[in-house]
Design a protein around this nucleic acid. Structure first.
Lengths: 304, 304
DNA sequence: TCACACATGAAAGATATTTTCGCCCGCGCG
DNA sequence: CGCGCGGGCGAAAATATCTTTCATGTGTGA
């Protein structure tokens, strides 16, 4: 009884069900049972050991191994591997679209998937809609600036601070203001060669438009990062960088996707400036990195 | 120290490369070698036995098994199965799409594209690597909390503030601290039913670990949002939410992708809590929305 | 410099897989 | 109707593979 399949087909890739059907007639009863079980639930069987599968099908280990051989694998181990692969393929096949809105009764796993998907979408949209000419001009202005002021309130305030932190890290003189009064009183200090940046999703947040207007009138270069490029804020902006807007829902306020979008724009500005000022930016970056290094191991304890 | 990873992530599906990156820092040299080999050639490694892989990487079987464990599998056998699945997926279709690093002389359009792609990747990895069980537990704790304190310094400080803002918006009592002293002095006020959240990419930022420890010892429920789930911070965390780590380059500091990842986690927490407390959250959300409405048209004027 | 902790691999121990071996059942022949 | 024969089949031995334990070396901090 030799099942010498010398030179036989290499381990079957995916068409396992077909192979089972083809070979079924030449199988004995027990082997058929095994083969059918395997073909019916690849994922489940992949989790089983020979013994497990033997019990499940009411046969013995030897039969399982014989079946595996008949299907073209060197042994059960390899069949099992192929099964795992098959299961993975099937798995990845479905679950394509999660475009629906987030509902109140969505399980947490769906929330994660949908949010991630939405934010990815937002990023793609933003990248596609960003005017690289404007971006380039903004970068040039920033790279040459004597001083940079960033305005943003509410959620945009955090983005302003993010940009602020980044610019400081590469040795530029930057400030971020969330307080409208401080913003305005500082804006009057600006002059040509300085840069003012207003961040507002709605494009009509008076609190950040006002300081931008002041800066604009003082002759500073002004940049607006907004989701409404034709909104009031653009009046006083030399360069307008448009952020994209995802649809919002009750559970997902606009602030959420606008933030993602704004951050991407801010990152682009940052990288752009870092490129232009590489000579000074690179050392500054690594210096700030090293400055932090000892704060980590310091109190934290060791790994694990 | 105990490696009780009870309730740890179930067998990872596909995002293995991401997981390797996330866990690499907490690995020893030999384990890193194994992990890299595996991530580099899933298909090839799936064909190897423990002994084979040990020889290939120049290490021992024990190390291979240890690595498999660290990656979240019960043993090497299961890692191998997952590897086979991964290989099948890769085979069956999409190109891995390699991204080049951002270079100093990249035109601005490339910068935008690469950044957007990287951040999308980071989001996908984070979503894939998030343990929804932990997330669910964290959400429950937050929804039932009397008071919520969030700690984060540096770039993570902004994320902490973002969460803070969001939680306030749905009527919860939350605070964010970037000042380590304030954080600790407030942490001593916490008790059971309160929640403390520490956000740190490195997992070893003493300034946020300390307040979390205090909160932990006071009996509060503690949550860590970190890129190194086995880092020191997890010692004092009831629930650990893992953020993914993208490879960083000179121009793209880790802080950048960690922020993206952290924000996604924070958003998930927020939505989760909003779902659970829908009755009170929904009105609170629309109330805060309306409160802002008049600040927009007020001074800004109309569009265009 | 010493001591400690921790990473590491060799080898023992446990499981899983493969092979061996012979039972048992059905069938044809005496 | 009984007897032998061939092959499906599974129990258990043999082997491969995986896991755990433990002793050793190595780097690190006091």
């Amino acid at each position: 009884m030799k099942e010498i399949f010398a030179g036989e087909a290499p381990p079957a890739p995916a068409a396992l069900a077909a192979k089972v059907r083809t070979l079924a007639p030449s199988m004995t009863r027990s082997m058929q049972r095994v083969a059918e079980t395997v073909a019916g639930d690849p994922a489940g069987c992949a989790a089983l050991t020979v013994t497990g599968l033997a019990e499940l099908t009411g046969t013995s280990e030897a039969t399982v191994v014989r079946t595996a051989r008949l299907l073209g694998y060197p042994g059960y181990r390899d069949l099992r591997l192929a099964l795992a692969g098959l299961a993975a393929q099937q798995q990845s096949g479905r679950a394509p679209a999660v475009t629906a809105d987030i509902a109140v009764d969505d399980p947490i796993a769906d929330v994660v998937a949908k949010l991630a998907y939405d934010e990815q979408q937002t990023l793609a949209d933003t990248a596609a809609g960003l005017d690289t000419t404007q971006l380039g001009a903004a970068v040039s202005a920033l790279a040459a600036a004597r001083r940079i002021d960033v305005y943003g309130v509410g959620a945009s305030g955090l983005v302003a601070q993010d940009l602020h932190q980044k610019l400081l890290r590469i040795g530029l003189i930057a400030h971020a203001f969330s307080d409208p009064h401080l913003a305005v009183t500082n804006a009057v200090q600006l002059r040509a060669k300085d840069v003012a940046i207003a961040i507002t999703h709605s494009g009509s947040t008076g609190d950040v438009i006002e300081p931008l207007r002041v800066a604009f009138e003082r002759g500073a270069t002004t940049i607006a990062i907004t989701g409404r490029p034709h909104g009031p804020v653009s009046q006083y902006a030399d360069h307008v960088l448009t952020t994209s807007t995802a649809r919002e829902s009750e559970l997902r306020p606009a602030a959420m996707s606008s933030r993602t979008s704004q951050l991407l724009v801010v990152d682009c500005l940052f990288i752009g400036v870092a490129q232009r000022t590489y000579e000074t930016a690179a050392p500054a970056l690594s210096a700030s990195y090293e400055a932090l290094a000892h704060r980590h191991s310091a109190r934290g304890g060791s790994r694990r």
